[in-house]
């Protein structure tokens, strides 16, 4: 099925450098669709894009795919290596397979959807990004998470939300353990509403918000106090 205006780049013929260079010539008034073939685990595929284009990557990618993305809607038809969508500003990134460590690290905005599982440190230091994971997430996820939302339909590993600030975590399955200063919090009406909106944006329709628990900061470590030293 060939859509009009689709620009196809085959990474077995074009260099990564040429691809990224061309993507950087696009600007906010460019739209259109890109298809990238033979991703073959390349690192830094479609990084630093700042245009409202859609980019379909065929095959699995290495580290930092869609790093610092602005505006673009990137879909990886495969799995992603470490640091997918790191420091994303806006737009969206979707992985149809699994994601390795640090997915969405330090992301500032936009939506990251992982249809498989995510490894450790998912959402580390997140600063406003929304992350939705259909499967499970690994240990130390949402470490020092500052803001944004992390939604997990499966289970979370050890030390979820260690040293968390103001990010909101919603987990449907079990949580192996909570990290320092992270506690379970009440799901109030506003949280059901926010979660429903996140699920809708992620295109997930087969779960109910009532199946989730919410976690966040106890805010006990916000100002250093010697009597809390054992918690660190």
């Amino acid at each position: 099925m060939q859509r009009p205006n689709i620009r196809t780049v085959d990474l077995s013929k074009t260099t990564l450098r040429e691809l990224n260079q061309e993507l950087h010539t696009l600007n906010s008034s460019t739209d259109g669709a890109w298809e990238i073939l033979n991703a073959r685990g390349f690192h830094a595929v479609a990084v630093g894009v700042d245009a409202p284009v859609s980019i379909d990557v065929r095959g699995s990618v290495g580290y930092y795919c869609a790093g610092m993305n602005k505006q673009a809607a990137v879909t990886v038809h495969g799995s992603a290596g470490p640091g997918i969508a790191e420091n994303m500003m806006s737009g969206s990134v979707r992985i149809t397979g699994d994601a390795s460590q640090y997915a969405g690290a330090t992301g500032r905005g936009g939506l990251l959807v992982i249809e498989g599982n995510a490894s450790s440190r998912c959402g580390v230091s997140m600063k406003g990004i929304d992350i939705v994971v259909r499967g499970n997430i690994g240990h130390m996820s949402a470490f020092m998470a500052q803001s944004g939302n992390l939604v997990v339909l499966g289970d979370a590993g050890d030390a979820l939300g260690d040293s968390i600030y103001e990010a909101r975590l919603f987990v449907r399955g079990s949580v192996k353990s909570l990290g320092a200063d992270c506690i379970e919090k009440e799901m109030r009406e506003e949280h059901h509403t926010a979660l429903a909106a996140l699920l809708e944006r992620a295109g997930i329709t087969d779960v109910k918000t009532s199946e989730f628990k919410r976690y966040g900061s106890a805010r006990k470590l916000y100002n250093f106090n010697i009597d809390n030293a054992d918690a660190y």
Partner: peptide, 30 residues
Amino acid sequence: IDQRSACRHPDWTGPDDLEIKIHELREITD
């Protein structure tokens, strides 16, 4: 609130990762 800055980078550890991180920064800035 007290703002802590982490002692390790959030998305890489070790020299092999650093190489990939530097490559990413170069790609972003052409």
